[in-house]
Write a protein that binds this DNA or RNA. Structure first.
Lengths: 153, 153
DNA sequence: CGTTAGATTTAGTACGTGCTGAATATGCCC
DNA sequence: GGGCATATTCAGCACGTACTAAATCTAACG
């Protein structure tokens, strides 16, 4: 049945966002939005995902604040429709920001150890982590550039 | 004072490992090992980090299982000494492994949505995440190669 | 063997966090 | 303004998880 695949897709997206420390429920809402062809109301979301209206409300606001969803007010009603708004790029960038302050803190302590087997080990760990973050950042910025190009056409 | 810098370095390493879902205490143990010139006993670790012996024991075993520390048995005593063993590379690789099964699950659901504004959006999200993981993997494997080269000299 | 020094395991506890349901706020229409 | 529909906020609860302290296990040495 197809509802199964839909369901497992949705929980996968939940896992994905959970790995960036968003609540699983919030991630599932995003997953649902991604596979929906049309914008959804909060009640529909709550019904399909078996969540309370309260949870859905906060989840949507979180998604909105991360740029993962946008809410469309309906003229003549208080009802909001919600749709996915592209990119997890902002999530990745946020975690990079955290990572960079972390790297700075590590560098700060780098000269606490001076003699050599330990010193090399330390530099190696910090260096690896730093270049890991770097390569991700680079990739993100080229992605951003491509996206801009796509828009202006 | 220098103990402060030492301390904040240690909690930074704790934060770092915590971002890979290891307990903060475990991460702090790793941090302490990184800035120690000599191997430490479990009791010393417990004393310096104000942790119970039990916590330190499990923390060390976790680190060992991730290849982040190794334990050195002392002949003629039951006491173990512990030292840092390089690389967070294995942590990164593990999270990549998780990410790849995740990507597979997402691809599985990709054709749940067929008509086009939604379809493109979905492909974009999955594609970005996939290439993000890819670039990290590549970087890790070149790192591994360099390390091998360093060893064999 | 018994004792001692240490590491490991286990039961219990405390804490953070996310979800629910109810209460409250806000906008819409008459 | 009153009443209705919908969204938001908040207090309370439930659950997972990590830490502690005590009990248990294991090895070394007399």
């Amino acid at each position: 049945m197809n509802a199964d695949r839909r369901g497992s897709f949705i929980v996968s997206v939940g896992d994905l966002l959970a790995s960036w420390n968003l609540p699983h429920a919030t991630g599932r809402v995003y997953g649902l939005l991604l596979v929906s062809e049309v914008p959804l109301s909060l009640d529909m979301i709550a019904a399909e995902l078996a969540l309370s209206k309260g949870s859905v409300s906060t989840a949507v606001r979180q998604l909105d604040s991360w740029g993962l969803a946008r809410t469309i007010p309906q003229p003549g009603s208080r009802r909001l429709l919600v749709e996915a708004a592209g990119g997890i790029a902002s999530l990745l960038e946020a975690s990079h920001a955290r990572a960079k302050t972390l790297i700075a803190a590590l560098r700060e302590g780098e000269d606490l150890v001076s003699t050599d087997p330990a010193r090399r080990r330390l530099e190696d760990v910090i260096g690896l982590f730093a270049s890991y973050v770097d390569v991700g950042s680079q990739m993100l910025s080229t992605y951003r550039r491509q996206q801009e190009r796509g828009k202006e056409s």
